[in-house]
Design a protein around this nucleic acid. Structure first.
Lengths: 234, 234
DNA sequence: CGTGCTTTTGAATAGTATCAAGGCCGGTGG
DNA sequence: CCACCGGCCTTGATACTATTCAAAAGCACG
């Protein structure tokens, strides 16, 4: 079973929720968890399949998607190191969303039966999980409003800032995640054509830059300014 | 302090989270909580004001709203008996949403400092709260998708079914909540004019009925059928 | 160096918001 | 009790935004 090294106590992902457990429980989880690398584009879990446990992202990037009418795909969340996938649910519940790796991503899986014990015995763990969900709910509600009330231009800008918020920028202001124009459209809930059209003027004005697949936010403050009329942003 | 009777242990709201606490804690909360009735239309809390604690709806109906650009109001959630308002947050955090009573509503308030103690000492309470947020997050993500990908007609239908889902129907299939056409528009993220336009054909086809301020869903299954093409619904 | 996918751009169309006007209550004050 | 007022609802006309369909250009990969 314990084929997954390194163990939790030596794991470099400091913000992992497992770290909130007592040392003996960390060891127990470490022993029973299952860790593996998902290749870029690979599914972590699919919509409408049973929930058997919780996924903890050790290192990487994941998109959480929901498929609608005519196969229209909506990205409902982005998640990075230390984030959780798959909400808490009983074995007989089904995922309402699917999750896919955006790059090669290492993910740990913990089964429901073990989780139930962990919950009972580790106050910090369940407390931080409760706070996590509470915050994600707040973010989701704000995102709902954005998608519902913004025009395409503002939705694209908000989506770019959301990516920055989740994954950050490297030194040259480039988004750390590689998302295609199509995926930015799925995040903003618009067509890929429209996403392209909305980004063109932003490039001309020098607010963003394309370098191959990299997107740089050269002036994130300017972008924030444009959509600040919608109220609180991320 | 203990001016708010009846006390929690005799409260008829059986699904209240406080009921998950140990008897001595129920008594302690009962003693320190603050209960009052909010008149129809009255604010429970406003956007961008500090979070001092958690609100538990004892009896009534509440809308959770977020104000956007040009004062555009978006209803992000509806809540009824036993539901929670105001997420968990520290004192220095601010509400990202506001809450308003849809009818005369009795609500109990518990302060952050007491909550912190309650969390630590009552496993069932914090566990059920964690599960609650987890489920609300899932619902919110589904609603995000709806608002983002549906057309106006389907959004109105989904909104009517959402109201039914939260508050239910009485014997004559009338929604238990009285929401104006304008508010249905705010729920569906469309203009009141468009909401009216979309409901007109539904009335003609006999799928819904207006009786004064009451809206009856005479054939909820038909409504579900229309939007089932978008996948899982509530 | 094709082949297939993504991106970009264009043109036509469809869907929705906006503006405007009239009708319908419900509440208020004479 | 009735007339008036203001807000909400409904409907129409118009303008605009975004989608759809189409085609060409760019790019990655075998």
């Amino acid at each position: 079973m314990n084929k997954n090294l390194p163990a939790c106590d030596t794991c470099p992902t400091l913000n992992c929720f497992v770290k909130r457990c007592n040392p003996d429980w960390v060891e127990r989880i470490s022993y029973r968890k299952n860790t593996r690398v998902y290749k870029k584009g690979e599914a972590v879990f699919l919509e409408n399949t049973p929930i058997f446990g919780l996924f903890f992202i050790k290192k990487g990037q994941v998109k959480v998607v929901s498929t609608g009418f005519k196969g229209k795909v909506q990205i409902v969340r982005l998640a990075g190191d230390g984030h959780i996938l798959g909400h808490s649910g009983k074995n007989n519940e089904l995922y309402t969303v699917g999750a896919f790796a955006l790059c090669d991503t290492e993910i740990c899986f913990v089964q429901n039966d073990l989780l139930a014990d962990v919950f009972r015995e580790n106050y910090d763990f369940i407390y931080s999980l409760m706070i996590y969900y509470s915050k994600e709910l707040r973010k989701s509600e704000i995102r709902s409003k954005y998608l519902a009330t913004m025009n395409c231009n503002d939705k694209v800008i908000a989506s770019l800032l959301y990516i920055k918020d989740v994954f950050g920028l490297d030194k040259d202001n480039a988004l750390k995640a590689r998302l295609s124009t199509k995926e930015i459209g799925q995040l903003a809930a618009i067509t890929p054509e429209q996403a392209s059209r909305e980004m063109a003027p932003l490039r001309k004005e020098g607010l963003i830059e394309f370098n191959g697949k990299k997107i740089s936010l050269t002036k994130p403050e300017k972008l924030k300014e444009i959509i600040s009329k919608h109220g609180l942003v991320f």
